[in-house]
């Protein structure tokens, strides 16, 4: 611990000298070295973020706080990117004395990093907002979502009434799901809905596993616990690996839902493979699963994909 503290203090003082030395020998600033040297995706964007956060240059600090502000105003969305990112990049080019004509590649790559980093921050805000929205059975739009979840998961059977034991078939605890969302609020429901609507085959495959006579589990309740896992992985930054390595997309709500679907699909696999004695082994297997996911996310090269095709066999 002492050693670690000493090292971080030392690093704080040494960093400028190391950076100065590298700058003189490579003729590139730290941001350029990252954008040219590190692999695109999680590795590059994480390092750019670290560099920007540690920067003591006044202009860089101002750009960072300006971008943070666009997140708070919810204006950091792709259609505003030219307006927001062009001046931000220009200020940093000037502060770091980078010639834009010689370093066009850097600009493209750095811009992409900025878009990823602050989209992630915006996503965090949006997810938190959705989580804080409690499920409210007096609101028709909430009720509609719940009923839609039923019709997507169990298309061949109608609900006999709004409050019915049938809900337990899709893994809610009692006759009325409204109390099961708890601290995950609407986020838990939206996650379940996305999995059912965007991956109908995978979700019905997982649902059928949850009815296994020996290894069965409560689908929706497990799903809400996975929402909680996805939420914490997003919040502590672990999910950056997943989000930044998604080449075609920027971090957004859809990508968060997809991350959740990946977790659900993989958890189900691990659960069935573990051959649990009964539902009481959930806590242990869930923890084991979380550790496995955290290990994967710790490797910046990890790319996650659901092998949906496989499950149609």
């Amino acid at each position: 611990m002492v050693f670690f503290n000493l090292w971080s203090v030392l690093q704080w003082y040494l960093r400028p000298f190391i950076k100065w030395f590298l700058r003189k020998t490579t003729r590139l600033c730290e941001l350029q070295r990252i954008c040219y040297g590190d692999k695109p995706g999680a590795e590059r964007s994480r390092n750019v973020e670290k560099s920007l956060m540690l920067s003591r240059t006044r202009d860089v600090k101002q750009v960072v706080s300006y971008l943070d502000n666009t997140v708070l105003e919810r204006s950091f969305v792709p259609r505003n990117f030219p307006e927001i990112l062009n001046p931000s990049v220009a200020i940093i080019l000037r502060a770091k004395k980078i010639n834009p004509k010689l370093h066009e590649l850097f600009i493209v790559s750095f811009r992409r990093c900025l878009a990823q980093i602050w989209s992630y921050r915006l996503l965090l805000e949006e997810v938190e907002e959705m989580r804080k929205t409690h499920y409210d059975s007096s609101l028709p739009e909430h009720e509609e979502k719940l009923l839609k979840l039923w019709s997507l998961l169990v298309p061949n059977e109608d609900l006999e009434s709004r409050v019915t034991k049938q809900w337990q078939y899709i893994g809610f605890q009692g006759d009325d799901p409204k109390t099961d969302f708890r601290g995950m609020g609407l986020l838990g429901l939206e996650n379940l809905l996305f999995f059912a609507s965007e991956y109908p085959q995978a979700s019905s495959h997982v649902l059928s596993h949850s009815h296994h006579p020996k290894y069965g589990y409560t689908y929706a309740v497990v799903g809400i616990n996975l929402t909680s896992m996805a939420y914490y992985l997003l919040k502590d930054g672990s999910a950056k690996t997943y989000m930044f390595n998604a080449r075609q997309y920027l971090p957004n709500m859809n990508l968060f839902h997809k991350f959740y679907c990946y977790l659900f699909y993989e958890f189900d696999k691990m659960w069935i493979e573990s051959k649990p004695e009964n539902m009481m082994e959930f806590s242990i297997i869930f923890k084991k699963f979380e550790n496995a996911i955290r290990n994967e996310l710790a490797d910046p090269a990890s790319v996650f994909r659901i092998n949906i095709e496989v499950d149609t066999i």
Binding site: D180, R182, T218, N225, S283, F286
Partner: peptide
Amino acid sequence: LDNAGKTTLLKQLASEDVNHVTPTAGFNI
């Protein structure tokens, strides 16, 4: 019963945040 508040009570005993509770599948200790 479910939704009685057992996990919230547990978290309160442990002085932990009670706003992120999820339904307990299995048990907590």
